[in-house]
Nucleic acid binder design. Structure first.
Lengths: 164, 164
DNA sequence: TATTGTTATACTCTATAACTATA
DNA sequence: TATAGTTATAGAGTATAACAATA
């Protein structure tokens, strides 16, 4: 009845080309590829994407609170608990009560957690370089800028960036 | 002890800047933004990302099999079942047994399913344009090419593209 | 009253094993 | 034996409601 049907019946040319025109579809597959490679990379040091991200911010901002970390990572507070539990179980970070506000806990990387982060960070940088190989000169920078522009386009114009 | 710690104690400058150097982190947030906007967009016609994608390929390739669809969408066969169920329940597609191979079923969009796709496709194109607004001239095209390059970088060099 | 960390819970997406009916 | 569709199940990631302790 249609060309597409003819293609389907007489050949096996069934692919995802009808969806390739959309940025979102290409981004989903690219992100899946990155996520799979990153998780395989981080498995070498027994971390995953979220525990690495949390550790990176705890290293960068010693004594930050879980609520601050959740906000910086754009995840809900309940979902952070198991991530922090996991890092604490590995003795990569410590939870110490805040003397000024006994509701809060300060997160800090231990020396071995700092070492773990340094090793993981090197692996992630290598992973990032591997995934962005063969891009044109400046392509990696332009890609990051384009991704941030898309993120900005999703924020309501009234809020300059207050929402998650 | 460190500048970062000083920042944390004396101000509230806790953000995700330490992770912004990674392409993967920026892509995760950009994709989250796209996914949220797309799902809100498709909710207008009671579809979601996966049901829209499946419907698009069924419209493009009438009578294709579920196994072909699963392969084209890079999802496992079991995960396709509920997607097809959902589209069939809405009378957007039909499952008809293949007379030549009674194990297989041919998927085809109904007239109302075709109309549903046309409406949804227009909405998704508007969504895509909205999310890629303010990119430089040719930026959208370059972005898609960069995303496809990242996808290609994740495939083992030995396999030209046979794996998912 | 509001906030911090937490528990419980639910929903989506994804992945694997195993079944049935066909081939 | 192998394949197509299916069922059951499990694991992530994510979201909300509600609680105890504290502000």
């Amino acid at each position: 009845m249609t060309i597409a049907q003819t293609i389907n019946i007489y050949t096996n040319e069934v692919d995802d080309s009808p969806l390739r025109e959309f940025v979102g579809y290409n981004m989903k597959l690219a992100f899946n590829a990155i996520q799979a490679d990153l998780n395989a990379t981080l498995a070498q040091v027994d971390l995953r994407m979220l525990t690495f991200s949390a550790l990176a911010l705890i290293v960068a901002y010693p004594d930050l609170r879980q609520s601050q970390l959740a906000q910086a990572l754009s995840i809900e507070r309940p979902n952070l608990v198991q991530i922090i539990d996991e890092l604490e179980r590995r003795a990569a970070i410590t939870r110490t009560p805040d003397p000024n506000d006994r509701r809060a806990t300060a997160l800090r990387a231990t020396p071995s957690g700092q070492q773990l982060f340094d090793r993981a960070n090197t692996l992630v940088q290598e992973h990032d370089a591997r995934m962005t190989e063969h891009l044109a000169r400046g392509g990696r920078h332009h890609l990051i800028k384009a991704l941030q522009m898309i993120e900005a386009n999703s924020l309501p114009p009234s809020q300059g960036g207050m929402s998650k």
